[in-house]
Write a protein that binds this DNA or RNA. Structure first.
Lengths: 199, 199
DNA sequence: GTTAATAGTGATTCACTATTCACATTATAG
DNA sequence: CTATAATGTGAATAGTGAATCACTATTAAC
């Protein structure tokens, strides 16, 4: 049966959603135009009315992910001013988000999306370094206001912050979700605090 | 021109080597039978004399990676008995190894190798959890001999240990190698020690 | 040197995927 | 109501990569 005619901006959202869904359940390499179209409920050729090809779909997926990550941070920054509290809440939100949005680690990790596309690789790099930059700023603030030890290597600490969640995502992925990311984040946080907090 | 006839066990090594090479430079998704064969200097159909297909090649690559990882740990365990020293040396070796062997993170991260192959996914899971298990044992020893704080969550700490190197690998990958993994490991270590060491 | 086993080759098949296009249908502005 | 722009459809095309096969060349054992 024929799909109902639907405004392009709606279809665009549906397409990104479907893509994320496929990535989360079957992996990035399983992402096909036909698969996306089927999930949306249209025929593959119809997809080209809304995106000019697979490349554009992937770009849209990246835009979505960046937004999700950044809105995460924005919320927390509004919630509290204390640097350690900010870091903790970002961590916990991040863990929950990756848990619900399993597509994100797939996209960030997979080389599929990179190779032969320097601009796209740069986009992913931007997303990660942008995120890291924010963490770094929070740590700097903490050093200024005396809640974080001044002898902490800011750069290394920010990457280690990522290190609380990133291996957890890999483990959760590899273990068919038997690894509990949120719980790990909860357990890892006090250890991390001990590293950087001024007691 | 015709390739020189070469014993199968030699070709098998060359094939794994070529595969690792391609994965490191172009990513896992770019790994094709034709590509491997070309690099080895034979024609794609000839590859089937040595492996029964792509699956077998990938399995061989996994075996290689597991060996590399484990020999790494074995060396260190022989070098020193002190738990903190062991961890530090494993970390530094690991960083250097990933730096030289860029294919490893690609394989561990990429979903390509997983989806639709539960057994292979399980193998990767085994490699990672095996590695983690060893780290966990070292931490436990440290708790016993008093070099590591007894209130440290062993599980969380071992995953965080991985977290010193894993995000670095992603960053190095995404940034075209502009991120210095070894340097990061050096900077991260004192922070990590502060978390777990009994002062 | 002959022979059997081993390794290499090119052609080909098969399945899968992205993309294009001519045509059909639907929504909506006027 | 109707014209037209937007969206949907199926068929066709082209590219890719894995795998098979009949055949050829080389090696090594006897």
């Amino acid at each position: 049966m024929r799909a109902k005619k639907t405004a392009s901006h709606i279809r665009q959202e549906q397409i990104v959603e479907a893509a994320l869904d496929i990535i989360a359940t079957e992996g990035l390499h399983a992402l096909s135009i036909a698969g996306i179209a089927k999930r949306v409920g249209i025929v593959s050729s119809a997809l080209y009315r809304h995106y000019n090809g697979k490349e554009e779909v992937l770009d849209a997926v990246l835009v979505f992910i960046r937004k999700r990550l950044m809105s995460n941070v924005d919320h927390v920054v509004k919630e509290t001013r204390d640097p350690l509290q900010r870091l903790k809440r970002i961590l916990m939100r991040h863990a929950r988000m990756l848990d619900e949005n399993r597509a994100i680690p797939h996209v960030v990790f997979s080389d599929w999306i990179y190779t032969g596309h320097p601009e796209r690789k740069a986009k992913v790099a931007d997303i990660i370094t942008g995120y890291l930059g924010i963490i770094r700023e929070i740590i700097k603030e903490g050093k200024n206001d005396g809640t974080i030890r001044p002898d902490t290597d800011t750069e290394a600490a920010s990457v280690m912050f990522l290190g609380m969640i990133l291996p957890a995502a890999v483990l959760s992925n590899v273990s068919e979700g038997r690894f509990d990311m949120v719980k790990h984040a909860e357990n890892a946080w006090p250890i991390f605090v001990r590293c950087i907090a001024k007691i």
